[in-house]
Amino acid sequence: SSGAIIYTVELKRYGGPLGITISGTEEPFDPIIISSLTKGGLAERTGAIHIGDRILAINSSSLKGKPLSEAIHLLQMAGETVTLKIKKQTD
């Protein structure tokens, strides 16, 4: 049976990049997913974020019904501590 787990990851960026690339579309209900991780970057080092994971919220702002451009804007405005709500498929 296919299921999913949902969890929250807190990234402290200390002025540096998060080390993630996200992808999606401008269709508001398409998923926003992690499309790549910078090798040795902040997100990869947590061990908790993987390519293909879906981002449900950024700093408690839900991405439900929001296009990719809004998600990118939220990441850019997120500040030093970025909290990502992640949904991972478990097959």
Rank of each mutant, 00 (worst) to 15 (best):
P28A: 07
G41N: 03
S69I: 05
I33K: 11
L11W: 08
A57R: 06
G16Q: 10
G3K: 14
Y14N: 15
E44I: 03
K64R: 11
G65D: 07
I20W: 05
A43K: 00
R54N: 10
E26H: 11
G41W: 02
L18I: 07
E44G: 01
I5Y: 15
K12Q: 13
S35I: 10
T8I: 05
A4M: 13
A78D: 06
G47P: 03
I34R: 03
K64E: 09
S35T: 11
E70C: 07
Y7C: 09
T21G: 15
G47W: 01
P67S: 11
D30C: 14
S35F: 04
T8W: 05
I58R: 02
G3D: 15
D91V: 15
D30F: 08
G15W: 09
T46P: 04
I5W: 07
L63S: 09
I20T: 03
I58L: 02
P17N: 13
T46I: 10
I22K: 00
G40P: 02
I20P: 00
T83N: 08
T8A: 07
L42V: 10
I34D: 03
S35E: 01
K64T: 10
M77V: 13
S2Y: 08
E26Q: 09
I20V: 08
F29G: 13
G52W: 03
G24R: 07
P67Y: 06
G65T: 08
E26W: 02
L68A: 07
E26K: 15
E26Y: 05
L56V: 12
T8L: 06
A4E: 06
P67H: 07
L11N: 00
S1Q: 11
G65I: 02
R45S: 12
L37Y: 12
I55C: 02
G19S: 03
I5F: 14
S2F: 09
S61N: 10
E44L: 04
D53A: 01
N59Y: 04
G65E: 07
L11R: 01
T38P: 06
R13F: 01
G19A: 05
I34P: 00
S2Q: 09
I55K: 01
K64P: 06
Y14F: 15
T25D: 01
L18M: 09
S23R: 06
G52L: 04
L56M: 08
L18F: 06
S35L: 03
P28L: 11
E44D: 10
T21C: 05
G24E: 12
L56K: 00
E70M: 09
L18H: 00
L37H: 00
R45V: 05
G16P: 06
T25N: 07
V9A: 14
I6T: 09
L18V: 05
I5Q: 15
A57K: 10
T25A: 11
T38A: 14
R45A: 12
G47S: 08
E10C: 10
S36I: 03
I33W: 15
G15F: 07
P67W: 03
S2L: 12
R13S: 12
S2E: 11
I34H: 05
A4W: 14
L18Y: 07
Y7R: 11
R13G: 10
G3P: 14
E10N: 13
G65R: 06
G16M: 12
D53P: 03
G47T: 07
I72V: 15
T21P: 00
T38Y: 00
N59S: 03
L68Y: 08
K12I: 08
V9P: 04
S60Y: 08
M77P: 01
I32Q: 03
S36P: 01
I33G: 08
T46G: 11
E27L: 09
A78V: 07
P17A: 08
P28W: 04
L42D: 02
L42I: 14
I5T: 09
P28E: 11
T21M: 11
E26A: 05
K39N: 13
G47M: 04
I34S: 00
G16F: 03
K39L: 07
K39A: 11
T46S: 14
L18C: 15
P17H: 12
K12R: 14
I5V: 10
T46W: 02
K66N: 00
I6M: 10
I33R: 06
S23F: 03
P31S: 13
E44A: 13
E27N: 14
I32V: 05
I58E: 01
T25M: 08
K12S: 05
S23E: 13
E27G: 11
G40C: 03
Y14I: 14
P31G: 15
G16W: 04
S36A: 09
I34G: 04
G52T: 03
P17C: 13
Q76V: 06
S69V: 07
R13E: 01
T21K: 11
T46E: 09
Q76M: 09
T38N: 11
Y14L: 15
D53Y: 00
L75F: 15
A78L: 02
P28G: 07
Y7L: 14
T21E: 10
I22Q: 02
I33E: 12
L18N: 04
I6H: 04
P28F: 05
V9G: 02
G15H: 09
G40F: 01
A78K: 06
Y7T: 15
G15P: 08
F29Q: 14
S61D: 10
T38C: 15
E26I: 04
A57N: 08
F29S: 13
S61Q: 11
L42H: 11
I51N: 05
I33F: 10
G3M: 12
G40M: 05
R13D: 08
G47V: 00
E27K: 09
L18K: 01
L56T: 05
R54L: 07
Y7F: 14
S1F: 09
T90I: 13
I58M: 01
I32L: 06
S1T: 07
T21A: 06
E27F: 14
L68Q: 02
S1R: 07
T25G: 13
R13M: 08
G3N: 14
A57Q: 15
T25Y: 06
D53W: 04
G3C: 11
I32M: 02
L37I: 14
A78F: 01
T25Q: 07
E70A: 10
I58Y: 07
L68T: 09
E27R: 11
P17D: 08
G24Y: 09
S61Y: 10
M77C: 07
T8H: 07
D53G: 00
T8M: 05
H50R: 15
S36Y: 13
G52F: 01
I22P: 00
S61F: 13
L56A: 01
G40E: 08
K39M: 06
E10L: 07
G3Y: 09
I55V: 12
P31E: 04
R13I: 07
D53K: 00
L11D: 08
P28K: 09
E70K: 10
G47F: 02
F29C: 12
G3W: 10
Y7A: 13
R45Q: 13
G52S: 03
R54P: 03
S69H: 06
P31R: 01
A43T: 05
G24W: 14
P28M: 07
L68I: 13
I33Y: 11
M77T: 12
D30A: 09
I22F: 08
E10K: 12
L56Y: 05
F29A: 09
I55P: 00
S35G: 05
R54I: 10
T90P: 14
G15V: 03
K39I: 08
S35Y: 07
L68P: 04
A4T: 14
A43V: 06
